[in-house]
């Protein structure tokens, strides 16, 4: 075996032995990014990311949920200005927690509520107690409309652009600062 060959062999061996370190290093950096992303909210391993944004609203009809009136897909498709759809329930603590934020928000954009798997009297009770931010309210007693929307839990909100296009979606409560910021950005974009 020539000297050069031997040297090549040794170099290759050294490179091979460094591979585990490189692999672990890449994983380490990735984990660090994930951890820091989890703190800022940029990375969430529990996110489902239902592919709804950019799509037209699905077909659905919702019956009245007192004190509001129900609505259907056609109502959203004939919109002239954006509307925020908000799935909520009286048995859901984060929904109650975001009510104040919704009451503030309704001055900016009309909010249409969907009572998810809720008894009409309970949903009505909540709105009487906490205030009613919704312009219209439909009842999804069986939770089937929610499935068509890709809803996996409450609260969940969708911004509908004129024409019935879903342009923004969040599975987090609107009492969260970051969520509101991103909603505002989406609203400005729609207005333009």
């Amino acid at each position: 075996m020539s000297d050069e060959q031997q040297r090549n062999n040794v170099t290759r061996r050294r490179l091979m032995m460094g591979l585990p370190l490189v692999g672990a290093g890449v994983c380490g950096v990735a984990f660090w990014k994930m951890l820091s992303g989890m703190q800022t909210g940029a990375f969430n391993p529990h996110d489902i990311n239902a592919p709804v944004t950019g799509r037209p609203v699905p077909d659905f009809t919702l019956v009245d949920q007192p004190p509001g009136t129900g609505f259907a897909a056609a109502d959203l498709r004939t919109l002239k200005s954006p509307v925020l759809i908000n799935f909520f329930a009286s048995w859901c603590i984060p929904c109650i927690a975001e009510m104040q934020a919704l009451l503030d928000l309704q001055k900016q954009v009309p909010i249409w509520g969907v009572a998810y798997k809720d008894k009409p009297e309970n949903a009505a009770g909540l709105l009487k107690h906490a205030g009613n931010p919704y312009a219209r309210i439909g009842s999804d007693r069986e939770g089937r409309v929610a499935i068509d929307w890709g809803v996996s839990g409450v609260p969940e909100s969708f911004l509908i652009a004129p024409g019935g296009l879903i342009v923004w979606h969040s599975a987090a409560g609107l009492d969260n600062e970051d969520v509101r910021t991103s909603l505002n950005a989406a609203l400005t974009k729609v207005a333009r």
Partner: peptide, 12 residues
């Protein structure tokens, strides 16, 4: 932006 501690109600 996508949710901090997202408390989902359906999850017992």
């Amino acid at each position: 932006m996508r949710s901090l501690a997202r408390l989902r109600c359906v999850l017992p």
